[in-house]
Design a protein around this nucleic acid. Sequence first.
DNA 1: CGGCGGTTTTGCGTATACATTGACGGTTGA
DNA 2: TCAACCGTCAATGTATACGCAAAACCGCCG
Lengths: 257, 257
Amino acid sequence: MKTDARRKAETARQTPRRKKAEPPSATRPRPSLQGIAKMPARERAYHELKFRILEGRLPPGTTLLETEVASLLSLSRTPVREALIRLEEEGLVDVRPRHGITVKALSVDEIEHIYQVFSALEVKAAQLTARRGISGADRERLDGILTQMERASMRGDIEGWSELDDEFHSELVGLCGNPRLQSMLRQLWDLQYHARRAITKLRPPPIVSDREHRAILAAISAGDEEEATRLHQQHRNRADKQLISLLRQQATVPASR
Amino acid sequence: MKTDARRKAETARQTPRRKKAEPPSATRPRPSLQGIAKMPARERAYHELKFRILEGRLPPGTTLLETEVASLLSLSRTPVREALIRLEEEGLVDVRPRHGITVKALSVDEIEHIYQVFSALEVKAAQLTARRGISGADRERLDGILTQMERASMRGDIEGWSELDDEFHSELVGLCGNPRLQSMLRQLWDLQYHARRAITKLRPPPIVSDREHRAILAAISAGDEEEATRLHQQHRNRADKQLISLLRQQATVPASR
DNA sequence: CGGCGGTTTTGCGTATACATTGACGGTTGA
DNA sequence: TCAACCGTCAATGTATACGCAAAACCGCCG
C-alpha cells in the first residue's frame, strides 16, 4: 500500500509497445480471423461490433439497447459499454441515452467531409514517404502491386483492382514514418469502407488511376517530394470527385443492394 | 481490507470544494468554467483529468492506478475507466494493465508527427474556407484579430500575440464547414497544447507571421483557393519548422521549470 | 551472492446490484 | 377534443463484488 499517490514514470522514451500483436489490418475490418479468441471481452466486443457494422451485418440505422448488444455478444454490459465508447468516438455509432445506440448512417455530405480529411492526410503521407525515400525492396513491392492492378484492369476485374488499390495506398502510407498519421488514416478508412464498397462495381475502368499510380511511384522513388505531392494531390482530387459524384448519383436512386 | 474499506460517510454527497480558480488559457481545455457541475460522472472525470493534464497539474510521467484516480476524483472506478478509455484514444495517457495509467510524455519526434498531421489539416481547412467564401462579418472579425496581433507584436507582448494567434487559426478552422476536420484539429491541438506553451516565450518576434496572416486572409477573402492554400501551406511550414527547432534546442537543455 | 520456483499480494476485467432519470401512456380538467 | 400532469417503469449511469492472473516477494538451492 502506497501513501504516495504518484510515482515517477519509468521514463522509457520509446512507447512501451504492448506485446499484443497489432490487430487492425489496414484494409480488413477484422483483426485476425482468429486472434479474437483470447482477448479481453472489451476488445472482443469492440472488434466484433466493428466488424459487423463494417460488413453491413448491422446496417446503418439499426438501433439496439445496451442490454441487447450485451446479450447479442453474450457478455455483460460493462465491456460492451466500454467498446461502445470507442465506437462512438470513432464515429461509427450514435449513443442516445435511453434510446439505445444506433449504427450511424453517413450522408453523402459526411462522406465528402471524411474524404476531404482522408485525402489531405494521404497526400501528406505520400509527401513524407517521398521525403524519407524508399528502399529498393519497397519499390519492388509497390511496383508489383501496380503490375497486378494493371492486369486486373485489363481483364475488367474491378473488384480485384479495388482491393489492390487499397493495398497500394495503405502500403504507401505504411512507409511514411508517422505512426499517428497512419492510425488516423486507418480510422478514417474504416468510416468510408462501406460507402466505398457500395460503389466499387459502378466505377469506370481505372485506366487513368493506373497511370497516375505509376507516376506517383516514380516520383517517390526519385525522392522528388514536390512532384510526388503534386501528383498524389491530383490523383486524390480526381478520384474523390468521381467517387462522391457516384455516391450522389446513387443516393438519388436508392435502388437495389 | 483490499478494497479501501469503502469511503464511509465522509460527508456523504458533500463534494470537497475544488479550487478551480485558475482562469488562464485562451483556448481553455475546460469546457465551461461552470457547466461541469451537473454532468454525468464520466464526463466530469474526463474533463477534470484532461484539464489537469493539459494544465500540467498532472505532469507527463505521472503514474496512477485506476483506484487512485478514482479516489482523486471521488468517484468509483467505473466512470473513471470510461473516461480513461477516451483519454487513451486521444493519446493523452497510456494505459498499461497492472501498471496503472501514465500521463504521456511526448518526445520531440512525436510532436513533430503531430504537427505534420495538424498542419496538413489546417491547410486543408484554409483551402475549404477559401473555397466556400466568408461573410463580411467574418472578414471583419478576422481582420480585427490580426490588428490586435500586430499591436501585440509591436508592444513585444508575445504571450498575448500567441493567444490571438490561436484565436485566429481556430476561427479560420471554424469557418471551413467540415465538422470532422474541426474536431480532429481540436484534438490534435490539445495534444500539442503543452509543448506549445512551453516555448511561447522563446519565440522570436512574429513580424513574419503577421505579414503572412494578412496575406492569407486576403487570399481567402478574395476566394482564391489556390493562393490561400499555397500561402497557408508556406506559413505552416515555416512556423512548424521554427517551433520544432526551438523544441529540440530546449530538449537538449532541459533547463528550469 | 545470485538465480529460480513457489507463494502471496494486488490490480484489473467482468459481472452484478443499485440509484437515477427521462420517456410514455393514461387520466383529468378545461 | 385536447393539453397538461402525474405515475410507472424501463434503460442508463454508477457503485460494488468477485475471481483470475500478473507481478512482487521470499526463501531455497546453486
